Amino acid sequence: DDVELRDGDWRVELKDADEEILRAVEEAIKNGASEQELRELAERLIR
C-alpha cells in the first residue's frame, strides 16, 4: 500500500509521488476531504 494515512494526522505520505499528485492531495486535504475520499483520490492518481 503506497498511501499511508494516520488516524487524526492528515499528513499523507505518497512514495514516489510526483508534484501533481502531491498538489492534488494537499488541495483535497485543504478542502476537508474525508480519509475515505483521500484514499480514493490517491488510488486514482497512483494508477
Rank of each mutant, 00 (worst) to 15 (best):
D16Y: 15
G32M: 02
K30L: 10
V12Y: 08
L14Q: 01
V12G: 08
D7C: 01
L22R: 10
L45R: 01
L5Q: 06
S34L: 03
D18H: 11
I46P: 01
I21R: 01
D16R: 06
G32R: 01
I21A: 03
E4T: 07
D2P: 12
Q36S: 11
A33K: 05
K30A: 14
E19C: 14
E19R: 09
L41I: 06
V12A: 12
V25W: 07
A33E: 02
E40V: 05
R47G: 15
R23T: 03
R6Y: 14
I29Q: 13
A42V: 15
I29G: 08
L22H: 09
R11L: 10
L5K: 07
I29P: 00
E27K: 06
D2V: 10
V3W: 14
E4H: 14
I46E: 03
R23V: 04
E37W: 03
D7I: 08
L14Y: 07
R47Y: 15
R6C: 11
E13I: 15
W10Q: 03
L45D: 01
R11E: 04
N31V: 02
I21G: 01
R44T: 06
G8R: 14
A28M: 06
E19N: 07
L5P: 05
L22I: 11
K15P: 01
L41H: 00
I46N: 03
E27D: 08
I46H: 04
R47T: 15
N31M: 13
R44Q: 10
L22V: 13
E37R: 01
L38E: 00
W10K: 02
K15T: 07
L14E: 01
I29H: 11
I29S: 14
K15A: 10
D7E: 06
D1A: 12
D2Y: 10
E4Y: 07
E35F: 03
I21S: 03
R6L: 13
E26G: 08
E20R: 13
E20K: 10
E37Q: 07
Q36Y: 12
I21K: 01
W10N: 02
E19T: 06
A24D: 02
A42R: 03
S34E: 02
R47P: 09
N31W: 01
D16M: 09
D1W: 15
V3Y: 14
K15N: 07
A17R: 04
R39G: 02
A28N: 00
D7N: 07
D7H: 04
V25D: 00
E27I: 10
R23M: 09
L38F: 03
E4P: 07
R44G: 08
R39Y: 07
E37Y: 05
G32I: 01
E43V: 08
A28Y: 03
R23C: 12
V12I: 08
K15M: 11
D9Q: 12
E26T: 08
E35K: 07
L5G: 10
D18R: 09
R39E: 03
G32K: 02
E27S: 06
I46A: 04
R39Q: 13
D2Q: 12
E37V: 04
E19W: 13
L41Y: 02
R11M: 13
A17P: 04
Q36I: 12
E37M: 06
E35H: 09
V25P: 00
E43A: 10
L14I: 07
D16G: 12
Q36D: 11
E4L: 11
K15Y: 08
A24M: 15
A24N: 03
R47E: 14
I21Y: 03
L45A: 02
G8L: 13
I29K: 10
D9Y: 08
E37H: 05
E40P: 00
E35Q: 02
L41E: 01
Q36H: 08
E43W: 07
E43K: 10
D1E: 14
E27L: 13
N31L: 10
L45G: 01
E13K: 15
L45M: 04
S34W: 01
D18P: 15
K15R: 11
V12T: 12
R44E: 11
E26K: 09
D1Y: 13
R44S: 08
E13V: 15
D18Q: 09
A17Y: 13
D18A: 05
S34D: 07
I21F: 05
A17F: 14
L22Y: 04
L14W: 02
R39N: 03
R11F: 13
A28E: 01
A33F: 12
D7G: 11
W10E: 02
R11P: 04
E20D: 10
L38K: 00
I29E: 15
R44L: 08
L45F: 03
N31P: 00
L5D: 08
V3P: 01
E40D: 10
E27R: 09
L38C: 14
D7V: 08
A33S: 05
E4R: 01
R11Q: 06
D1H: 13
R23F: 07
R39H: 04
E40Y: 05
D1G: 11
A28G: 02
E35M: 09
R39F: 06
E13R: 09
D16I: 10
E20P: 05
D7F: 09
E20T: 11
E40I: 08
A42H: 08
E27A: 05
K15W: 09
V3A: 07
E27N: 13
W10V: 04
D18I: 06
D9A: 10
R6H: 06
A33I: 11
E4M: 11
G8Q: 08
V25F: 15
R39M: 08
R6N: 14
A17G: 04
D18G: 14
L22K: 11
E4V: 04
N31D: 06
G8T: 14
I46S: 04
I21T: 09
R44V: 09
A42M: 14
I29D: 04
E13M: 15
L41M: 05
L22M: 12
E43N: 08
R11W: 14
R47S: 15
L5C: 13
W10G: 03
D2H: 13
K15Q: 05
D7K: 05
I29A: 13
E4A: 13
S34G: 05
I46L: 13
D7R: 02
R47H: 15
D7W: 10
A33C: 03
R44H: 07
D18E: 07
E20W: 14
S34R: 01
A17H: 09
V3R: 10
R11Y: 13
A33R: 04
A24K: 14
E40M: 02
A24G: 01
A42T: 09
Q36V: 12
K15V: 13
L41W: 02
V3I: 13
R39T: 03
I29Y: 15
V12Q: 06
E43Q: 11
V3C: 14
E19L: 06
D9M: 10
N31G: 08
Q36L: 08
E13W: 08
E4C: 13
L38W: 15
